[in-house]
């Protein structure tokens, strides 16, 4: 498959002050590589405020995304953080979740991308893999870890 996940959309050990700085950094390669339009970032931020995506897995994960109309080409950007930042919990905006890994999804056709979405869910349920992703020092390591599941 033409991979939604690629090394040039994986960034590691980023230092972010808050969730919005983290989302902005994660969105950068999607924007620069023509995956999303100029409205994407603001729409993701807005959605995150209304429908937060933090998941309190053993290593906290967030899955920010927004509507298909901002997506030009489908892709996923992965960002790991050197220090956790606070997200609100998915389905529970009052809950605070410390997030260390972001999967920023630029998806148009979820039925077509079900495989890769399921792969991400499989990974976030696997504490060992999450810890390896969190500890990875370069994009290639993360890419190889994820590819084992695809």
């Amino acid at each position: 498959m033409e991979s939604l996940i690629d090394k040039d959309r994986i960034q590691v050990k980023f230092s972010a002050e808050n969730q919005f700085a983290a989302i902005e950094m994660a969105a950068k390669p999607l924007w620069e590589q023509g995956y999303v339009d100029e409205g994407f970032l603001a729409a993701v931020m807005e959605r995150e405020r209304n429908f937060p995506t933090g998941l309190p897995t053993r290593v906290g994960v967030a899955l920010p995304h927004t509507e298909a109309k901002y997506v030009i080409k489908e892709g996923i950007s992965i960002l790991t953080l050197d220090k956790p930042v606070l997200f609100a919990g998915m389905g529970n905006p009052k809950e605070k979740v410390l997030v260390e890994i972001l999967f920023l999804l630029a998806i148009k056709n979820p039925a077509k991308q079900l495989g890769v979405l399921q792969t991400i869910i499989t990974i976030i349920q696997n504490e060992m893999v999450l810890k390896k992703i969190k500890g990875a020092k370069d994009p290639k390591t993360i890419y190889n870890l994820i590819n084992q599941f695809i």
Partner: peptide, 14 residues
């Protein structure tokens, strides 16, 4: 149901 009926609800539905 999910925020956009796009990503998480697709996985959950399956």
């Amino acid at each position: 149901a999910c925020g956009t009926a796009l990503a998480t609800s697709t996985v959950v539905a399956r």
